[in-house]
Design a protein around this nucleic acid. Structure first.
Length: 268
DNA sequence: CCCAACTCCTGGGCGC
DNA sequence: TGCGCCCAGGAGTTGG
């Protein structure tokens, strides 16, 4: 699943292609998830940033073209359009290193948006999103305070993007395992919040360093797999021995997401 | 405002 | 070999 490490990998790859390029033509799947591609025709990209799992490309028209990969979204560049049946949108670029930017998404959980720069009022997840895990604003006090405001399971809270941005199912399980916190815990001490915040940073940085996690669908902008799947500590290891204590890892569904943890190391 | 439940999507894996 | 079923999950929507 594209989470912060995968999205950051893609962002860094598409940045040099988009910045300075003008969209001279575009087309999309008829769903309004993808038709915003048509609205960016005539605009020139000026920067490509990331916020959580969203890629934000600023234009000279004072807008931001937003790309969200969803579950199976991929981007690619080419000199001629491919015949991929799952292409949901494409942009023709003037003065880029490649003529076409394509957005391919088998399951159509991804989406495109075009908003006035900085106006996320109509994108709830962005609007309520917590700080960037590697940003200057992140701190234990706010993170702990955010967790205390909700009575939901901590795993659910992480997936909500509110305490901190960019964590999805894989890295949530990884970080909770690293910090020895039970995913169903509803409140945690400030010290444990500190441990969890640090574990989130470690898990995400490891994912970035490994080029993301490819379980099945994820590929970067150059169609390459990540390598982090070979170093997962908890996610997907249900029934296998805990790498700390040896007990078989447990698994259950929390908030409709498969969750794996060690019932010995991660006690409530 | 929060939250739980539901919805969107389709290839791949599995049982029979 | 093929059919039917179910799973994967980020986030938007809806109703309480």
């Amino acid at each position: 699943m594209p989470e912060l490490p995968e999205v950051e990998t893609v962002r860094s790859q598409i940045e040099p292609y988009l910045v300075g390029s003008t969209v001279i033509n575009a087309d999309s799947h008829p769903s309004d998830k993808f038709t915003p591609a048509l609205e960016v025709i005539g605009s020139q990209f000026q920067s490509v940033h990331r916020r959580g799992k969203f890629i934000l490309a600023a234009t000279d028209a004072g807008q931001e073209f937003i790309v969200h990969l969803g579950m199976t979204g991929k981007v690619s560049f080419s000199d001629s359009l491919t015949d991929n049946p799952y292409r949901r949108a494409w942009l023709e670029l003037d003065d880029s290193m490649a003529r076409y930017f394509e957005f391919i998404d088998v399951r159509r959980f991804g989406r495109l948006r075009l908003v006035e720069a900085g106006d996320y009022s109509k994108i709830a997840t962005l609007k309520t999103m917590g700080p960037e895990p590697f940003g200057s604003e992140v701190n234990v006090e706010d993170f702990w305070a955010a967790l205390k405001k909700s009575s939901r399971a901590i795993k659910t809270q992480l997936l909500s993007q509110r305490p901190i941005a960019g964590v999805g199912n894989i890295y949530a399980d990884e970080a909770l395992w690293m910090a020895k916190i039970n995913p169903t815990a509803k409140t945690i001490s400030k010290q444990r919040a500190k441990d969890l915040l640090e574990a989130i940073q470690v898990a995400l940085q490891k994912g970035i360093d490994n080029g993301g996690t490819t379980l099945r669908d994820y590929r970067n902008a150059f169609d390459a797999e990540g390598q982090n799947q070979h170093e997962l500590l908890a996610y997907g290891r249900a029934g296998e021995p805990c790498l700390r204590c040896g007990k078989a890892l447990s698994s259950k569904v929390i908030d409709a997401r498969t969750t794996t943890w060690c019932s010995n190391c991660q006690r409530r």
